[in-house]
Simulated scan of single mutants.
Amino acid sequence: MKSKLLSRILRLALPLLLFASLTAGAAELPKESRVPGGIALVPVPGDPSNSLAPTVIFNTHRVAVVRRDDQWIAVVGIPLAEKPGELKLKVSTPSGTTEVPFRITDKSYRTQHLTIKNQRQVDPNPDDLKRISTETQRSDAALSKFTATDAPTLQLISPVEGVRSDSYGSRRVFNGQPRNPHSGMDIAAPKGTPIRAPAAGVVVEAGDFFFNGNTLYIDHGDGLVTMYCHLDSIKVKLGDRLERGDLIGTVGATGRVTGPHLHWGVALNRAMIDPALFIGMK
């Protein structure tokens, strides 16, 4: 009698265990917004029963791919500079390589006029420009990382409590001079406010940068890299492995700023994306 009961329990449990094995580790997806600075969730070819995801390339950078509802989904970061229209992914599977098109629409971002007290932060001198060039290379190397994982992390928590601005994508004018669009989220908070890791990851770059002040970069895997600028203090070092919620630094006003705040940047396949899409704000 006991053996029959056990057999029946196992028959009922096996489908649930199979379902759990297929969905275990499934990544939470960010919100889709097919505009410059947004994210496209694009179905791509590939055998969903195969644990090996297809390789997807966009603008020479590898793209995160997750399995959803018996199909593979490419989670594509769209650069702010992309023009509206049709874009293409290069998808490689054991069967070969193909192109998958998708379309994006336009989005208008506002213009911000800001006054900076230190004019060198607007018009750097020749020595400053050499420093900026070196720091730009360091930053690009960190933001371009793609560390493959079994379960991509694509949902984040806000790294700091504070007033979040909607300044992402805004065209910025410093002391009357146009500069590059704002590629992150500004979160205003008092100096010394703790900043915490929005997801597990590894510290891949840190230091004092000319424009960004005390700056930190975290690689979360699968092309998702976050950056933290204008910190008062950095509480971690290169190579540190972090868990979600770990203390990484404190809010400050270093670099080119108008007051204490955190500039939080999120890169996906090297494109700087609106961080709000990762924390359920849009």
Rank of each mutant, 00 (worst) to 15 (best):
L129K: 15
L129V: 13
K130P: 00
K130V: 14
I132L: 03
I132Y: 05
S133E: 13
T134D: 10
E135V: 08
E135P: 12
E135A: 10
E135S: 12
T136L: 11
T136Q: 13
T136H: 10
Q137F: 02
Q137T: 07
S139L: 06
D140W: 03
A141T: 06
A141M: 08
A142I: 02
L143F: 04
S144N: 15
S144W: 01
K145R: 15
F146D: 04
F146Q: 06
F146W: 13
T147A: 02
A148K: 14
A148G: 00
A148C: 00
T149M: 10
D150W: 02
D150Y: 04
D150F: 07
A151N: 15
P152F: 01
L154F: 12
Q155A: 14
S158D: 06
P159S: 06
V160F: 02
V160G: 00
V160C: 01
G162M: 03
S165R: 13
D166I: 01
D166K: 10
S167N: 15
S167V: 09
S167D: 15
Y168A: 05
Y168L: 11
Y168P: 06
G169D: 11
S170L: 05
R171I: 05
R171Q: 15
R171F: 10
R172M: 04
R172S: 01
V173M: 05
V173G: 05
N175C: 11
N175Y: 09
G176M: 07
Q177V: 15
Q177N: 08
P178Q: 02
P178H: 03
R179C: 00
R179Q: 07
P181T: 10
H182E: 04
S183Y: 06
G184D: 00
G184E: 03
G184M: 03
M185I: 01
D186Y: 09
A188C: 00
